Simulated assay, not measured.
Amino acid sequence: MSQPQTGHALLEVQDLATHFATRAGVVKAVDGVSFKVDRGEVLGLVGESGSGKTITGFSLIGLLELPGRIVGGSVRFDGRELVGLAPAALRALRGRAISMVFQDPMATLNPVLTVGAQMLLALRAHERIGTAQARERAAAALGKVGIPDPTARLDAYPHQFSGGMRQRVAIAIALLHRPALIIADEPTTALDVSIQAQILVEMKSLVAESGTAMIWISHDLATVSSLSDRIAVMYAGRIVESGKTAAVLRSPRHPYTRGLLDSLPARAVPGQELAQIPGTTPSLLRLPPGCAFASRCANAQADCLAAQPPVTAIDGRTYRCFHALQPELAS
C-alpha cells in the first residue's frame, strides 16, 4: 500500500450518481451524493430500506452488478480517482486498502473451506507470506474480534460458528491487511441485541486502536449514534442531512431526520404507540420534480413540490430543505 497522502480527506465523494436501467425505466438509486471521510473517522450512513445506502457502499469500491452503473460524479480515495479505474486496479485496492463487511457473513465466507484457509487466501491475495506467519496473523485477527482460542478455531468451518461468531470472522478478515477504510453494510442487523452491542464495542475499539476510517451503513439510528463521529441521512437516493452526530441528533434540521428520531423506541411513552413517518418512500423510477419527502412531510409547502431544495451548508452541517426545522437549544 502506498504511503498516505496528506492535505485532503481519505475519501472524497462528489455528486455520485448510480443508476439501474430496467425495462420499466431508470432507477436512480444514488442521485448526486457527496460526503467526505477523514482518516480515523467513523461516518454513519443511515436511512430507510431502499434509500440507496448499500448501493452507495458498493459504488465506492466497484462492486456494482449490471444493470447498475455509475453515471456521474467522483470518488477519490487517498487522492486517487476510483470512478473509471480498471477492474484489476480496483481488485488490488479491495481487501487491502479498502475492506467491506457485509450484512450476511456468508457473503464473505466459503462454507467448504476452513476459516484458516480462507484467511490465508485473503492474506496471500495481496502479500507474499509464509504459512506459519500467515496463520499467526490470522489467529491474532480472530483474537482481536473476541473469538476464544483463535489458533484452534482456524481449523473450524463456518457452520461450526454461531451467527455472531461468523460475523466476527468476517470482520477479522476485513482487518487482516490493516485497511485505511472499512465499509460496514449493516453487519449486526441479523444478530441478537446483546451480540450487536458486543460487536459495536469491539468495532469502536478496533477503529480507535488502528486509526482505520469506517463507513457504517445502517437503518438503525440508535446504533449509528453510538458509533459514529459524523452522520449522513439518506432518503430516496440523496443525502438530506449531514453533520457531527451529536449536533444532528440534538437538533435535526430536516423533517425526515426528526421523523427517524421520533420513531426510536427509546423515545416512546410507555403504553403509547410508536411514532411513525406517514406514507412510503416514493418509487425511484418516478421521483417527483420537487422534494422526494414532500408527500410525507408536515412542513411541505408549494415550493417543496415544484423543485428540489438546494444543499444548505452552515456550521459544518448540511441539509436539503426549503423549510428546515429551527435549531433546538441544548439543555
Rank of each mutant, 00 (worst) to 15 (best):
A330R: 12
V193A: 13
V233P: 02
R317W: 11
P187C: 10
Q118M: 10
A268E: 09
I215H: 07
R178C: 09
V240C: 14
P252V: 06
I61K: 07
L227D: 05
D220V: 04
K244T: 12
L175G: 01
Q118G: 04
A324D: 05
A86N: 11
R286G: 08
H254Y: 08
A134I: 11
G25N: 06
L90R: 08
L113G: 00
L175A: 04
A29M: 11
H126S: 06
N110S: 14
Q198R: 04
T281H: 04
S228G: 08
G143C: 12
T114N: 02
L227N: 02
Q301F: 01
H254S: 08
G44I: 15
S34I: 08
G146F: 01
S242V: 01
Y256H: 02
L43H: 09
D104E: 15
L43Q: 06
S51M: 03
L260I: 09
P105A: 07
A138R: 04
S225C: 06
M214C: 10
Q14D: 14
H19M: 04
P67A: 14
D104K: 06
L121E: 15
G143D: 11
K53C: 03
A117K: 14
L221Q: 07
G57W: 01
Q133C: 08
K36C: 13
N110D: 15
C321P: 05
Q5D: 11
S331P: 15
S99F: 02
R23I: 09
L181G: 15
P87W: 12
P252W: 03
R69D: 14
V145Y: 02
K36G: 01
Q160F: 07
S242I: 01
P187I: 10
R80L: 13
L249W: 10
L154Y: 03
A302Q: 15
A232D: 05
A29E: 10
T281I: 15
I173E: 02
A140W: 13
E209P: 00
Q118W: 04
G163Y: 01
F293P: 02
A300T: 11
P150C: 07
A180W: 00
H126D: 08
L249V: 10
E65V: 10
T151F: 13
C321D: 05
D303K: 04
T114W: 03
I239C: 07
